[in-house]
Design a protein around this nucleic acid. Structure first.
Lengths: 120, 120
DNA sequence: CCTCGACAGTATCTATTGGTAACTGGCTAC
DNA sequence: GTAGCCAGTTACCAATAGATACTGTCGAGG
């Protein structure tokens, strides 16, 4: 079967998932929900400078992909709680590998940029 | 223990790196160069449906970040070869973790989407 | 009574990015 | 002599991200 999809095929579904993970906020939301469920405004305030519209879009997409659940409590004022599903939780490790890489190699990247810009 | 940068701070450089990796083509280029240096058209033809302008942008950014080297051979017709640097090579493992996750959980995501769409 | 603020978002813009199609230059092969 | 090859660039357009303002409902404060 499709033991190894061809990532280079634009129709490969893995590409779609990479696009999801690659979007600007999904990773941050996962990292934020790692420590427990959060309400909309908690997420909005915790994640720097995300516009509510974009956060909503991100959360809806994640809900559709089965990464988070959205619980609405019909109170006034309204309360909506987002929680990582097991699927979403399983993403934490891969993401941690990435952020670890980023933190480890940040100096190398910064200095590469400096060199490049100096010669440009 | 993440005593390092706060990913939720928009000024955290880790965010910048996540943005890079999150861009649509960088990951594909790394995966493609994993098996060895490639010329521009080889990359363009291998990676489905990438516009030359966008591939150029991606490669320049990666060059600036120190992920690839760009070698120009002043021949006619011109020849330009892109190669992964050690830094770029070090990205293969984190990326593999991600693609493995994607391939493993693809069925779960697909079915989550189907359920969501059915109830919408 | 009138206003204010809380929450979880919309609505409506504008800016940035992604993407398409056509063009460049120097050569070589038809 | 014109048609392609490579590695892009330029001009242009569409899709997306983001900033800002607004909605509805309620209880609290004046």
């Amino acid at each position: 079967m499709v033991t190894k999809g061809d990532v280079f095929d634009p129709n490969c579904p893995t590409r779609v998932i990479l696009d999801r993970l690659g979007d600007k906020w999904t990773v941050l939301v996962v990292l934020r929900l790692r420590s427990g469920p959060q309400r909309f405004t908690e997420l909005r305030d915790a994640i720097g400078q995300v516009a509510p519209k974009v956060l909503t879009q991100t959360l809806r997409r994640m809900e559709r992909d089965g990464l988070v659940t959205r619980e609405v409590f019909p109170e006034i004022p309204p309360r909506v709680v987002y929680t990582l599903t097991p699927l979403g939780t399983s993403l934490i490790d891969p993401i941690s590998v990435l952020t670890d890489w980023a933190e480890t190699h940040l100096p190398a990247i910064t200095s590469a940029q400096a060199t490049y810009d100096a010669n440009a």
